[in-house]
Computed example of a mutant assay.
Amino acid sequence: MLDEKQLKDLLLPKIDSYREEVNALNDYMAENPEIGSAEFQSSAAIVTLLRKHGIETEYPFAGFDTAFKGVINPEKKERMALLAEYDALRGLGHACGHCASGSSSVLAALALNEVRDQLDFGVDIIGTPDEEINGTKCLMADKGVFDGYDFAAMVHMGPFSTATSEFIALDGLGFKWHGQPAHAAAAPEKGRNALNAARLFLDATDMMRQHVIEEARMHGFIKNGGEASNIVPEFAEVEFLTRAPRREDLNDITAWVKDCARAAALATRTEVEMFPVGEPFHELYISELGANLMRESFDELGIPCADQSGMKGSSDIGNVDYRCPAFHPMMGIGIEENCHTQEFADAMMTQGAHDAIRNSASLLLCMAAKLYGNPQLLQQIKADHKAYRGY
C-alpha cells in the first residue's frame, strides 16, 4: 500500500501529459455551450477522450441521455467518485465555469488511469448533467448512484480559491391560483380575484420571517397577475424558493409556506394548485476534518487559499453528500468577476482558466493521496459524516 507521499509523487507528474488535450476539450465546450440535459456534444467529447485513453465508459448512464460513468479499477472495493459538470447557463454560455470544472475532473481521471495498476483503490468519473436547471445529481442520488463511495469530489471555478462553500437546502415551489373573471367595474361581486390570493400569500410569507430561524431565506415573484386592469384576474402564478441550512429545518418552513398558499385561497375563495419547481436540494456538510484536508492540499500545492467561504446558495452537490462525503472546493481563475457574468464566461478560454484546470486536477489528486495514503483519516471523515447524517 502506497503512503500519501508516494501517491502524490506518483500521481501529480502525470497531469502534464494530458493538459493539451484537456485544455482543448475545455475550449471546445466553452465555444459550444449546451444547456442542461442537452449537453450532447459536450458529453460525447468527454466520453471520446476517456475511451481514447482506455477508460471503460458507460454512456448514456443511469437513464440520463447526457450522463456517463467511466470506471478505473472496477475490481477494487474502495472507490472514489470524481464528478464532472458540463452544462451551460441560458443566455450566458459557460458563465458558471462548468466547462473548466468538468475538464479538471477529466484531467484528474486520466492521471489516475495511467497508474491504475499501482493503486489500491478504484475511481469512477461520473458525468452529472443539468446542475443549473433541474439538478440531475438529486435524481441520481435518489437512484443510488452515489451509494457506497468513500467520497465524491469536484472543483468549481470562481474568482478566488477556497476550501469551503455554503450550500444550504432549497425547495423550489410553484403556486397557481384559479379564480373567476368579471368586469371590474360593472360586476366585481361576481369575480374571485386570483391576484389578491397571490398578494395575500406573499404578505403571509413576509410575516413568517420573524418566526423562522434567522438563517432561513424565502424569496419569490409573481409570474402572472392578470391580463387587463378592468377584468378581475382569474389566474395568478407565483414562483417561490425556501432555503435553510439543514433539510430538517427547511421541511417545516416549506410546509408552512404551503399553508400560507392554502390560506390565501381560502380567504379569496379561489383554488390553489401547488407543484415543485426543480428538485429539492439538500445542504452540503463539510466537517472540520474535511475542510482542513482541502486547506492542507491547497497549501502543499502552493495555491493561495482564502479564509472566507466561496459560493453561497444551493446546489445538487448537497444531495450527493446525503449518500457519501462530498467535497466541493473552489478554484480561482485569475479574475475578480463572479460566476454568472459575461466576464466570467469570456475568461473560460484564457490561460487563467487553463491554469485553474491544472490546479483543480492537482487538488483532486492531492486530496485522494491524503485520504488513501492515510486510511485512518479517511475512516475518521467517513465516521464523522455518518454521525452527522445519522445513517
Rank of each mutant, 00 (worst) to 15 (best):
N113E: 11
G310C: 00
N224A: 14
G135L: 09
L377V: 04
H340P: 00
D249Q: 15
A30I: 00
A84R: 09
K370Y: 09
T341S: 12
D150V: 09
I125C: 14
A198Q: 13
A84E: 13
N230G: 00
M218K: 10
H340M: 03
E237L: 12
M218D: 05
T242C: 07
I303T: 00
L173R: 09
L301T: 01
G179C: 04
A216Q: 12
A361Y: 01
A267F: 13
I317Y: 05
D124P: 14
I15Y: 08
V320F: 02
L363Y: 09
D130S: 04
I333C: 04
S229T: 11
M367F: 04
A263Q: 09
L7T: 07
S17W: 07
F235Y: 14
S37V: 05
N292I: 13
P329S: 07
A84Q: 09
I335T: 02
E336R: 14
P159L: 06
N73H: 12
Q308F: 05
E31V: 05
D316H: 10
G191F: 11
D171F: 01
G352P: 13
L173T: 02
G302P: 01
Y86Q: 07
H94Y: 13
Q41G: 09
E114Q: 13
M311N: 15
H98V: 06
W256Q: 14
G174A: 15
P280D: 04
T164K: 11
G93V: 03
G70V: 11
G220C: 02
L25Y: 03
Q210C: 11
R217A: 13
A216L: 11
A67K: 07
E248V: 13
Y388Q: 12
F344D: 09
G318V: 08
H282Q: 15
G290C: 14
F275K: 13
V212A: 10
A100I: 05
D346E: 15
A111W: 04
H282F: 14
A109S: 10
D130G: 03
V232I: 10
V155N: 05
Q379G: 06
Q41L: 10
V238N: 00
L200M: 12
Q41K: 14
K137V: 15
Y372H: 14
F151A: 12
I125H: 15
A345K: 01
A169N: 07
F240M: 09
G302L: 02
A383T: 03
D316V: 12
G70W: 05
S360T: 00
M1C: 05
H385W: 13
P276C: 03
S314G: 03
E31M: 15
A197I: 02
T136D: 07
D124Y: 07
R269V: 10
R79L: 06
S105M: 03
R358M: 15
G373E: 07
I286G: 00
E20S: 08
E85M: 09
E78N: 14
F298Y: 01
S315Q: 04
P188S: 02
M1E: 06
G332K: 04
H211C: 01
L364S: 01
T270Y: 00
